[in-house]
Design a protein around this nucleic acid. Sequence first.
DNA 1: ATGGTTGGTATCCAA
Length: 264
Amino acid sequence: MRLVTWNINSLRLRLPLLARLTSDLRPDVVCLQETKVPDPLFPADDLRALGFEHLHYSGMKGYNGVAILSRHPLEPLSDLPVWYEKADCRHVAARVLAPSGSVELHDFYVPAGGDEPDPEANPKFAHKLAFVEETARWFANRPNQRTILVGDLNIAPLEHDVWNHKQLLKIVSHTPPETERLQTWIQSGFVDAMRQFVPPEEKLYTWWSYRNRDWKASNRGRRLDHVWVTPDLLPELSGMTIVAEARDWPSPSDHVPVVLDLAE
DNA sequence: ATGGTTGGTATCCAA
């Protein structure tokens, strides 16, 4: 099974890029974040035309929004918590009935957290910290088996998940309060699937800001997008690819797709 | 220290 996670930053605007990704890589399942489309306007017909017959999504006007697109049948998980008492379309989950064995799949879009890394002064940062605490607690209190958690978690946890560790310690996405909480979350039952393929001492990015004139030349990236799996799935992992060239596609997202291959 | 760009929606907010 080939799984992709991608913060697409407007699904409707980037449907042609999703079509390109689909024809280039033939994913079985695609998890999207920042779809920015309310459910009644979700482009389901376009996605079915790309081969994704099974769709599960949660979107709202203007912001956020997550979606799972699948060639295999989905059984949505309908009783998910409302994180931070805000129904703001940051989490969907479903059981994927793949021929190689079904898996439980969670697709997250964690709050970005604003600019000021102080929960007292910045309510967005307080929201982000609380969101990660709540999700960590929830996963710690349930059995996690054959489960995959993906998404834009908006935190780069390791030193080499950012272009300059020391400089970014005070920048939201790489501050200790965030990386510590992410650590607690992953320890609720997961392992970092991307780092199974690339050692922690190697730089690894999935996002490059729009604000750099030449993203490739400056290469000031961060690994904000993640793929976690429960340890029982480790023997089935067969490959991981960051589709960095997508950052140069016409009208790109600032995030690039991450591909995980699981054995047939 | 500052500003740089993009998308959705409405002329500003969020990232």
